[in-house]
Design a protein around this nucleic acid. Sequence first.
RNA 1: CGGGACGUAGCGCAGCUUGGUAGCGCACUUGAUUUGGGAUCAAGGGGUCGCAGGUUCGAAUCCUGUCGUCCCGACCA
Length: 570
Amino acid sequence: MRATNLYAPTLREVPAEAEIESHKLMLRAGMIRKVASGMYTYLPMSWRTMRKIMNIIREEMDAAGGQELLMPIVQPAEWWQASGRWDVYGAELWRVKDRHDRDFCLGPTHEEAITMTFKQDVRSYKQLPLSLYQIQTKFRDERRPRFGLMRGREFMMKDMYSFDRDEAGLDKTYQRMHEAYTNVFKRCGLKFRPVEADSGAIGGSGSHEFMAIADTGESAIVYCDTCDYAASVEIASVPAGACEKEAFGETQKVATPNCASVEDVANFLGLPTSTVVKTMYYQADDKTVLVLLRGDRHVSEVKLQNLLGCLELSMASDETVEKFGGKAGYLGPVGIKGIEIIADCEVPLMYNYVTGANEEGYHLLNVNYQRGDFVIDKVADIREVTAGEKCPHCGGVLQGARGIEIGQIFKLHDKYSRLLEANYTDEEGVERPAVMGCYGIGVGRTMAAVIEQSNDEYGIIWPMAVAPYQVVVIPVNDKDEALTAAAKKIYDELLRAKVEVVIDDRKERPGVKFNDADLIGYPLRIVVGSKSLAKGVVEVKIRATGETMEIPVEEITEWTKKRIGEELTK
RNA sequence: CGGGACGUAGCGCAGCUUGGUAGCGCACUUGAUUUGGGAUCAAGGGGUCGCAGGUUCGAAUCCUGUCGUCCCGACCA
């Protein structure tokens, strides 16, 4: 490709809308342009990379027994009503009507669609197991699209669905997909970790998220430094440690003016926040519950929602709180009746702690559940784990990190096959629902994650396997005919050798070409200059390491092919 | 959905407080010189100031509404 024809409109200045490095670089390198919030046009450079990532995914999915198909983006409302998700999915489901006023949605995922496909044609255990996948545009009307391709409303996703006869079969398929995902992300050059995760609105249990490690990641994870345990903080579970036994102190009401937060109270009383028990009212669908937690802990709303089995969970309003006898900012469990009280596992083990007095400006000291100061209806693990705690598997120390969720695998079991009646007949002639799994990869997000992990002050540093082009050839002076002819010859030879190469034949000064080459991130740069040419060599620069070397002109094609081969098998 | 901010040329911004008919840098076009890390000079082109009302002799500027965009939070495969 000649740079004079290449549609890669680079920018010197960063558009004001971009916040994180991958978004800025994709805009600056002329890879994407925004159409509306959360919707982008993929210009040729990003689409080449997207296609490479999709092909890596295809190869690994096919190797793991998958077969590619393509379902419609638009799906009838009836399918979603049948699975119950027409109501459950909420405002994120992008609903549309046709001219007859019939309801449809733009597919955010395809469990219903694939299950309906399956049930049309699969009858017998002899047809199982079966794994089907597609790579397709998905729509989710996100509340807050952000960070460019990281969280779009329209995005590219690979989604695979597996059908097995039983749980044992699903376990095998799931494991195989776990390995396939590991291969995909390795080949993309990512630093990543599979973590135990919540299965969310999709339903089912048993799930791993594949997290690309990056400080700008939206998800917090913990991982063990001595074993392979890793989990999202929302779901990570560490057993509550017993507290040192203390004698019950006498409960006292103390004035704590203007101390409406745990931190204020602890500072005011000169105590650590871990000696406070905080009280929160949550609205779970139509029901209000009271939640108790050690003062320095955070509620995992995921765990709480799973415990309560509710669709919507949010903090209750001040009016609701007061209806139950609470006083916002000074909440406590003592004397509260008529509401379910849920305590995190740590709370019943604590002694002599501080709670609100349900009276503005007052707290209680030396409160003890074990003495019967208040009641608890349910004890459960409802808190987020923090870095520094003990690994639940091996006792090592948990480390904290942030990650970009680039893939997730779920065990769906028979949730959809039962609801949509996707059954097969076994050897005994008994009809059984197929046991399903689903496996997603965000293609654009994977591309963004690669950039997020691999860039410097000059631009993108593409791993060879996903670079839009592998090599750029830069003639350094467009007036020197011998030089441009030599560059053209090298370019033609590389093309013949099936190298993905761009020649920067623009009438620009060398500095402009070098800067664009760094910004776009070609893994290899071949510079043809008059001084080196006089010596019969060209200069090669490796983008990733910055190292430069001189290669004789007649060897450059072979050298380049060899180098690309090495990079691709690394 | 709650909180905050911003919409002026393709991009980055100034002008708005104190109303007088729009400006800077980059990019773009033409010519000349220049050619190993974002050149120089000269001459050009490009904007219903997001949109709609209102106030005023006069609105980018003041008022009201509306749409869009971004950030933080909540939420989310």
